[in-house]
């Protein structure tokens, strides 16, 4: 009997050791520098609040950590969309002024491989900037670094809260360099194929309710030949 108990305790210990090794392996899920951080092209920078209650609308299956907002919004409870969330956000320019509207729809991805440090979410953005035009952004996001640096420490905290300063790129593809694909659809973006990176800055996160203080950023690289043709809005466009 004592050997069986030793074996079971050993198995549990082994599982815990392996899980800890995966979670804290510094070589897995490590984020590199965003290729757009060193681009020579013009970029459009848009920011948004990362707190769901700051959204115009946020909805999911209603049973996830982050509650839908407003409270009476229709929830995505059907089997096909249970792992999906949708939100409408106000996008701001570099000066903090309202620049447009962003709609983000995200779904957990079957490409998720915890063994390899991949907590993947497939997401799309529709961004409309009045007076300038609209665009569609397609990306895969990897939340592995977010999970191990914010979510795990929050669960280990006696107050179930994480506080600090974490800045990370969420975009991990589908571009070869870890960038999102952007298709311009109207206005000055019409017909343009661009690249983008979404990043998140988190200052406080709790296990019940998710982000308390967070801000997201969309960095969109305009194609080199768009520099001369597009009218430049100084508040939105930063020349790197």
């Amino acid at each position: 009997m004592k050997y069986l108990i030793a074996l079971i305790i050993g198995i549990i210990s082994g599982a815990a050791i392996f899980a800890a090794g995966v979670a804290f392996n510094p070589f897995v899920g490590k984020q590199g520098l965003s290729p757009l951080a060193v681009t020579d092209s013009q970029t459009v920078t848009l920011t948004y609040s990362g707190v769901a209650s700051d959204d115009v609308v946020f909805t999911n299956d209603g049973e996830s950590r982050i509650s839908p907002y407003p409270e009476k919004v229709l929830q995505l409870w059907e089997a096909s969309i249970r792992q999906t969330s949708a939100s409408v956000k106000i996008l701001r320019d570099g000066r903090g002024q309202v620049a447009g509207l962003g709609i983000k729809i995200s779904s957990l991805s079957e490409a998720t491989r915890l063994f390899a440090g991949k907590a993947i979410v497939d997401s799309v953005w529709y961004v409309y900037l009045p007076g300038r035009g609209g665009m569609f952004i397609e990306q895969t996001e990897n939340y592995w670094d977010f999970l191990r640096r914010i979510v795990l420490p929050a669960y280990r905290s006696s107050a179930n809260i994480w506080q600090g300063s974490w800045i990370g790129n969420l975009t991990a593809g589908p571009g070869a360099l870890g960038t999102a694909k952007v298709a311009g659809s109207s206005g000055e973006f019409s017909g343009l194929e661009m690249l983008a990176v979404e990043s998140l800055t988190v200052r406080a996160w709790r296990t019940v309710g998710g982000p308390l203080a967070a801000e997201g950023q969309l960095l969109i690289e305009l194609p080199p030949d768009a520099d001369d043709e597009s009218p430049v809005d100084e508040a939105l466009v930063e020349d790197e």
């Binding site: 079971i8 050993g10 210990s13 082994g14 998720t112």
Partner: peptide, 25 residues
């Protein structure tokens, strides 16, 4: 026995993480 259990635990967790889908749409 305890050490064998640890090895089994590591192997079982690795196998489960590698083969079982974390997300199934």
């Amino acid at each position: 026995t305890f050490l064998v259990g640890i090895l089994l635990g590591i192997a079982a967790t690795a196998g489960a993480l590698y083969s079982l889908p974390a997300v199934d749409q």
